[in-house]
Amino acid sequence: MNAPRLIVGLGNPTDQHASDRHNAGFWFIDALLRHYPGQMRPDTKFFGDVGEVRIGTQVVRLIKPMTYMNRSGQAVGALARFYRIDPEDILVAYDELDLMPGSARLKLGGSSTHNGLRDLTAHLGTPRYWRLRLGIGHPRTLNPGQSVINFVLGRPSAADQQLIEQAIDRSVDHLPVLFRDGWEIATQQLHSADPAMQAKKEAKSSNPKEEAGEKARRRAPEDA
């Protein structure tokens, strides 16, 4: 598969929401622009701030939808149709409740309860676009009793903010791998660098019986 021709960062406009967890996708675009020369500008026909950067030999378009999260697809769909960008050539960065702060994972397609992704899927006509899932944690773990909506529209703690920023920087650092070697290798390397994945591997290596059991489970389908 080709590297992305369009990178989308999801979030909500206005200074009121700039520090919200829900704006992790916007933070990703900001971090990308600190690594690669470029700038964003408002474009009313695409309902958002748009720009472009060169990564390796490829010029990549960027967009931050300014339609508010629930209507993100309006902006992305308009730009994708204008430039004839296939959904599988789009990478969408967004906040992920099901991952803890500090984690970042790549994924192609799938269902989601994230309002921004649901609107993207409706406007693109398919869920088969790439997602960069930036972990923000879940209120049931980090803020028991707080509603999901208040959690995502709230500011992370200083420690969690640092972890999220580290995951974003790590993801930006892996973009050259994506453009040079493709999605599969970039996904493997990004996931291998995830602290949660590293901790899991260390836990298995410290428990030989569990590691042996895991190897046996992986071999089982081939031996059957």
Score class of each variant (00 low, 15 high):
1 M>V: 12
5 R>D: 13
6 L>D: 08
8 V>M: 06
9 G>H: 07
10 L>T: 09
12 N>Y: 00
16 Q>E: 14
17 H>S: 11
20 D>M: 02
22 H>T: 01
23 N>I: 03
23 N>S: 02
24 A>P: 08
25 G>A: 04
25 G>N: 10
25 G>L: 07
28 F>D: 10
28 F>L: 06
30 D>M: 00
32 L>E: 02
35 H>L: 05
38 G>I: 09
40 M>H: 13
43 D>P: 08
44 T>E: 07
45 K>Y: 10
46 F>A: 03
48 G>L: 05
49 D>Q: 15
51 G>E: 08
51 G>K: 00
52 E>I: 05
52 E>V: 04
53 V>M: 05
60 V>S: 05
66 M>V: 08
66 M>F: 02
67 T>V: 01
67 T>L: 03
67 T>A: 01
68 Y>L: 01
69 M>Y: 01
73 G>D: 07
75 A>K: 04
76 V>W: 04
76 V>S: 06
79 L>K: 00
80 A>G: 08
81 R>D: 07
83 Y>P: 06
87 P>M: 00
88 E>D: 14
90 I>P: 01
92 V>C: 04
94 Y>E: 05
94 Y>I: 02
97 L>A: 02
98 D>V: 11
101 P>Y: 13
101 P>L: 07
102 G>Y: 14
102 G>I: 11
106 L>K: 01
106 L>A: 02
107 K>P: 00
109 G>D: 12
110 G>Q: 04
110 G>E: 08
110 G>C: 05
111 S>K: 11
112 S>E: 05
112 S>I: 03
113 T>G: 13
115 N>R: 00
116 G>W: 07
118 R>D: 01
119 D>F: 01
120 L>Y: 05
121 T>P: 02
122 A>P: 00
124 L>D: 07
125 G>C: 04
127 P>C: 06
129 Y>I: 01
130 W>P: 08
132 L>G: 10
136 I>N: 04
136 I>D: 09
139 P>K: 08
139 P>L: 07
142 L>T: 06
142 L>V: 08
143 N>C: 14
146 Q>K: 12
146 Q>H: 10
147 S>K: 15
147 S>P: 15
151 F>K: 02
153 L>W: 09
157 S>C: 05
160 D>M: 08
161 Q>N: 13
168 I>A: 02
170 R>Q: 12
170 R>G: 11
172 V>T: 05
173 D>N: 08
175 L>M: 12
177 V>A: 06
178 L>R: 04
183 W>R: 06
184 E>V: 14
184 E>M: 12
188 Q>W: 01
189 Q>M: 03
192 S>L: 12
192 S>F: 11
196 A>V: 10
197 M>N: 15
198 Q>I: 12
198 Q>T: 01
199 A>L: 13
200 K>E: 11
200 K>I: 09
203 A>C: 04
203 A>G: 12
204 K>E: 15
205 S>M: 15
205 S>G: 00
207 N>C: 12
208 P>G: 05
211 E>K: 15
211 E>D: 14
214 E>V: 11
215 K>T: 10
218 R>A: 13
219 R>T: 05
223 D>Q: 15
224 A>M: 12
224 A>E: 15
